[in-house]
């Protein structure tokens, strides 16, 4: 049957046509396509790999960022605590200093007051004595003007007194 017996002419034509097509396509057709497709596939693969790496880096970066944030927060807390402690300490010390200062001022004032009192007392006693001397003088003068007897008695008593004063002063000096 002619269906299963290859026809010689067609065989020749087919060989010729297929060989020419094969030659042209193998030389100019398919290698150009496949090499470019391969190149692109390689590039896409590389891009994918790069993207994956970038993603990995990004995730590690964000991790690092979170870590950093955590650190910063801890640092901040620590600083706040330190600051509050410092503040308390400063207030405490300021208070103490103020207290000391106040004490000192008070002491000074007290001292000064005491000294003033002393000097005032001294002045007062001097004044009192001078006043009393003047009063006495006036009294004495008045009495003396009226009674000479009396004058002599007074002088005597004064002398005695004076000597007593001397004695008591000497005793005091000795002590």
């Amino acid at each position: 049957m002619s269906l299963v017996t290859p026809d010689f002419g067609l065989l020749v034509w087919m060989t010729l046509i297929f060989a020419i097509v094969l030659f042209i396509l193998a030389k100019f057709g398919f290698p150009a396509i496949t090499s470019m497709v391969d190149k692109r596939a390689a590039k896409i693969e590389k891009a994918l790999k790069d993207a994956e790496q970038a993603e990995k880096q990004l995730s590690s970066l964000s991790e690092r960022q979170a870590e950093l944030l955590e650190q910063t927060r801890a640092e901040q807390n620590r600083l706040i605590q330190q600051a509050s402690r410092e503040r308390e300490r400063i207030i405490e010390s300021a208070k103490a200093q103020a207290q000391a200062e106040a004490d000192k001022i008070l002491q000074n004032a007290k001292n000064e007051i005491r000294a003033e009192k002393q000097s005032a007392l001294r002045d007062l006693s001097a004044l009192v004595s001078s006043l009393s001397v003047q009063v006495a003088e006036k009294i004495v003068r008045h009495k003396l003007e009226t009674d000479p007897q009396e004058q002599i008695k007074l002088i005597d008593s004064l002398i005695e007194e004076a000597s007593r004063l001397d004695d008591s002063a000497g005793v005091q000096r000795k002590a």
Binding site: I24, L25, F28, G29, F30, A32, I33, M36, V37, K39, R40, K43
Partner: peptide, 14 residues
């Protein structure tokens, strides 16, 4: 095939 190949020669396939 040749027109496809020509496309590849004229373009940067990447």
């Amino acid at each position: 095939v040749l027109s496809t190949a020509r496309w590849y020669r004229r373009h940067d396939a990447s």
